[in-house]
Design a protein around this nucleic acid. Sequence first.
DNA 1: ATAATTAGTTCAGCCTGAGAATTAAAAAAT
DNA 2: ATTTTTTAATTCTCAGGCTGAACTAATTAT
Lengths: 415, 415
Amino acid sequence: MPDLIDALQTGCGPLLPVVTETRPLRQRLFESLRAAGASSRADLARWLDCSPASVTAVSAELIDAGLVKEIDAPREPSRGRPPVALTVNAAVTAVAGVKLTDDAHTAVIIDFSGALIAQATLQSAAHRQTMAATLTEAEALLDMALAKAGMTRASLSWVGLGIAGVVDHAAGIVLWSPLLTERNAPLRETFAAAIGLPVTIDNDANLLALAELWFGAGRGMTDFAVVTIENGVGMGLVLGNRMFRGGSGLGMELGHTKVQLDGALCRCGSRGCLEAYVADYALVREAQTALHFNRDEAGSARELLETLYDEAKAGHKAALSIFRRAGRYLAVGLANVTELFDPHLIIISGGEMRFDFLYADAVLAEVQALTAQTGRTAPKIEINAWGDMVWARGAAALALSALTEQLLGTERVGG
Amino acid sequence: MPDLIDALQTGCGPLLPVVTETRPLRQRLFESLRAAGASSRADLARWLDCSPASVTAVSAELIDAGLVKEIDAPREPSRGRPPVALTVNAAVTAVAGVKLTDDAHTAVIIDFSGALIAQATLQSAAHRQTMAATLTEAEALLDMALAKAGMTRASLSWVGLGIAGVVDHAAGIVLWSPLLTERNAPLRETFAAAIGLPVTIDNDANLLALAELWFGAGRGMTDFAVVTIENGVGMGLVLGNRMFRGGSGLGMELGHTKVQLDGALCRCGSRGCLEAYVADYALVREAQTALHFNRDEAGSARELLETLYDEAKAGHKAALSIFRRAGRYLAVGLANVTELFDPHLIIISGGEMRFDFLYADAVLAEVQALTAQTGRTAPKIEINAWGDMVWARGAAALALSALTEQLLGTERVGG
DNA sequence: ATAATTAGTTCAGCCTGAGAATTAAAAAAT
DNA sequence: ATTTTTTAATTCTCAGGCTGAACTAATTAT
């Protein structure tokens, strides 16, 4: 704007507009309906704080479009005209979610109401691959899932794709991933072109947060963090019921927050990262010392960790101290998240919660102790083991919300 | 909503609505105009991405209301009909900003366009006081500033009030402050009742961020953090051009993020807080050791720190190491902010930047080193010494934005 | 003078949604 | 059985916010 009179540049206040989002009533109504499962018009009007007249108009529009339908629902007898239940027409279409890992890719298909239709798993290459090779696997997996569901690609209208690494969700580009040989891979466009369907991508931690927001403990929360500990340490954050991806939209790097000056060496090259104390590889390298194993006799990292865990359970001092230390540093990381974001809930989530030393009461108590001093109420911390499909479900939720935005949002993307 | 049919609770997706904010065009136009200082209708239409017709209508409305006026502005000759410059009518009203500290309270008065009219300072009690006593001082200070400006309270329409501590901006309550003897002090309502004007309150770190957003380096940024090091360590954060105050709206506690497991004792009672390494009191207690002073011979904390600083400058090894260590821990804290929020800019700001060891290139380089590994572009870090009035100016910006919201926003607060 | 160019206005109209009155369908009261 | 009460849903009118298209206004270029 500074076109006109630079001499008069005496203004004040932010030069850039606030990011503002308008959700038309039809979208809010639809999303409320899907969230509730089924609901009457009167309930919707109360819930959305709008007039019954608007609900009638909007729901008629949605019913005409075939997205919503009336159903007969059992109800308790009560005074007054009985409400008519509305529900999302699950049969409208379906979407898929695919999660890529270096172990096994997973996929799920859900219908328009969010209900699970089918799932599939495909053993994947354990090493870095090109994007092309990875996406070939993803395509095969998607077709497997479709076959299980008795569907074809034409039955789908969106696919969500998740991958570990630094992912630019908005641009659809993977800046870096432990799975891919190339950097700045245009994953979204490439996969979309390959399967002939619109695609949305995100990183694994955000998928987990999305899964919690759509299917789990986060459904009733507006602000929560989801922390996951696997090969690395990831975090997805929901603020004001929306994914927060940081200033540049690349997601947060809880695993690389520093919990120790000049601390343990992280695979990122820095020292003192949280990851360098609690991620798998951090435990593995100490396990080798504790159990007096060489790399050769140790077998796979996974086996080594299992041994370490068993030893710790059996009372092995050194083994136990590894988990203890990891737990204490995890507490520091979670405390820092609390001090900076002040979420109402921290969910520690993932496919499996193998090492319960990390999620012991002592760890949670330490988080409380580290944060209790500043006067605010400490967040609750929950542990959630979901099984391997949780990421794929999160990816499916990603697809479903993108589809809904396209169908009902203000910004129509090509139709 | 779960009124209807619990049996059908098969829904998915977030149950709570996204926090959505609608800013009517008249408000966006007005704020753009104030930000630009002066602008033509045509420029505004381009800037706001709306039709010229709307700009004509809205600006006519604002001119009628007396909030905006046309001015003659010098312009370069160019083809076409010459634009007519619009500007905010600065004379409409004024607002004040007041900042309370345990050293000296400060106040500024700015006009409706944000231009400074007057400022004043009042020596304050160096000890904790009741809210009533503090507000009596604040009231006296406000009247001093008004007298300097040749104005009366009736000339003001809003007052912003800032105080260190845990402040619930939305509720107008100070949960805890180093200045007040009581907890959960209803500062906003009490001061509003005392001076007969609407009041908005916030904590000092947020005021600083607001000052940067309105008057400083943050004006052209949508995402940035402002860090301040004084008696404690505070942070204000702007995300998407809006203040972010954490999940509970109480602000962030950068000073109590942990940078060392079982580290230095913080005045909050925990160990390893950033504050316990870089805040004034942390330097003081080490200075006593380094300079072999007793409490008695040391004089005030301020003098002690000055001595420490001079000694360090002169090459005193122990004194230097105190600043060095503080700087390194500060780098850890800033690196963590970067990993978690990924702001485009971190501004280290405050009234005075006394100890340039803390803001040395070595510190900034360490932040870069600690964050460079994760692939994203590290934020720029700027140092900004503003002088004592910066907080009061931030408080005035707070008042001005609250006033604007009331005048032009959708949510009319009582008329 | 005339054309070209840019600024700003007028006016009809669309879209979203609200309010009030009305109709619909059930249980409770008589 | 009829009436009243209660709650649900619809219809209709209308207002606010904004747009597009056509128009007027004021300047420079030719």
